[in-house]
Design a protein around this nucleic acid. Structure first.
Lengths: 241, 241
DNA sequence: GCCGATTTGTCCGTATGTATC
DNA sequence: CGATACATACGGACAAATCGG
């Protein structure tokens, strides 16, 4: 990866917003100034600014400038936002993580499963259930269905760590898009037992399909979260419907 | 609105994906072909394609083409995805909607409220609680705090309909960015009573701040949803961290 | 209220790199 | 290897919004 210019600029500006070099409420330097700072064309600056705005860090105001609207997050919780695996997110937060495998089998997709997961009928898949613990506390019950043809050698040992890391680093698979749904659901007996819900009887559920750079949907996943450890962040912009 | 080119192209492609003129799994015409179809530059086509990908309709595959990955949604639920007011969303789904005002007062922001809502200490605000019914069923308990200086004439009559419609059409305010958090929480007594939760005892909560085109945060809002009527859709892309 | 400077928004044409087939 | 397709980057032109004088 050669490190693209727009991405460097984006990351630099993002860090300067996060560490409050550019505090919330203030204006970033103008596009013209930024082209001088980063020695690049205005289009490249604009691309970095578009990414900041997309992710809720800034807001461009026509004729005025680019305003910082980012507010640092205070809650000490496990956040879901980008496509980020559990292991990655935990490491980023500096929290020790442990994964227990509850089930590891192969299945063949029937019609009902096809409608649910998006895999074609007859596909051979791995079916994996895992319990993720954060600093000892069980927080997510993970159900993954992976398309076997994309990763024939997946094993329990790999599943104990980060499957995403295996796919990207060892198989050189490039993970790109993910469509997800978030719902709140009544806890199942399995939820209660594994997540140690006690008096709580509901979970936050993230269900999604993931695609790789070949355009193949290789994963269907459902993560059932302990509600007291779940926050999902989102930024929306109104104009382009 | 002059109808920008990239937006026209985006909407046209989006509708052709939704009505399966370009079915899921197939490739869109190449960028070069699209420049001929829409008689515009490649940059403009690429901007429309970037919007499609951002919203989960397509995925670009380097050296191959742009693949359609959109799957039409079948579930008949109330969806949250863009900045869309309750009234707008309901109308879009063709469902009759009724709003009851539970509380309508003005408050002055103290330190505690400032930390929570993001408004400066001392701001004069409207505090509104509303119960939204979909086809007779209570589905959302809405709490809004609006900055009074941005909408001095807001009234109960307006709040019974769509406040967003009032802000945009009458006050010509342009609503742009919104940062939101989604959590699942134990139901409060008020939740249970108003949302008629019966045996359910939890709600899906969407909390957020909304900004207008002047860069002013004019709203803090919390929507407490009946879980059986709540789905949140999201698309994430991995590459740009 | 108007004018001019500044700033963001839209669009174009072109060049070069890189992945796929 | 060549043709095709997407990715990055540059520079320029004009429009539209904001703000100060």
């Amino acid at each position: 990866m050669p490190a693209e210019k727009f991405d460097d600029i984006y990351r630099d500006l993002k860090s300067k917003v996060e560490d409050e070099t550019y505090p919330a409420g203030t204006m970033l330097p103008s596009e013209a100034q930024l082209t001088k700072i980063y020695r690049c064309s205005r289009n490249t600056v604009r691309r970095a600014l578009a990414m900041l705005a997309e992710r809720g860090y800034t807001q461009s105001i026509h004729g005025k400038g680019v305003q910082v609207i980012y507010e640092p997050v205070t809650r000490a919780t496990f956040t879901v936002g980008n496509i980020e695996s559990f292991a990655e997110s935990a490491r980023r937060n500096g929290i020790p993580v442990k994964t227990a495998i509850l089930k590891f089998t192969t299945i063949t997709i029937d019609e009902k499963a096809a409608a649910r997961t998006g895999f074609p009928v007859g596909s051979e898949c791995f079916y994996i259930q895992r319990l993720r613990r954060l600093d000892g506390t069980p927080v997510i019950l993970d159900i993954n269905v992976f398309l076997k043809s994309e990763m024939p050698a997946l094993s329990e040992e790999i599943a104990e760590g980060s499957i995403y890391k295996y796919l990207e680093e060892d198989l050189k698979m490039q993970i790109t898009t993910s469509n997800r749904q978030i719902t709140a659901e009544k806890a199942t007996p399995a939820d209660s037992r594994y997540l140690e819900l006690h008096d709580l009887d509901f979970v936050a559920v993230v269900t999604g399909r993931t695609y790789n750079s070949k355009g193949i949907q290789f994963e269907w996943t459902q993560s059932r979260h302990r509600p007291d450890y779940f926050v999902f962040y989102d930024t929306a912009r109104r104009k382009p419907v």
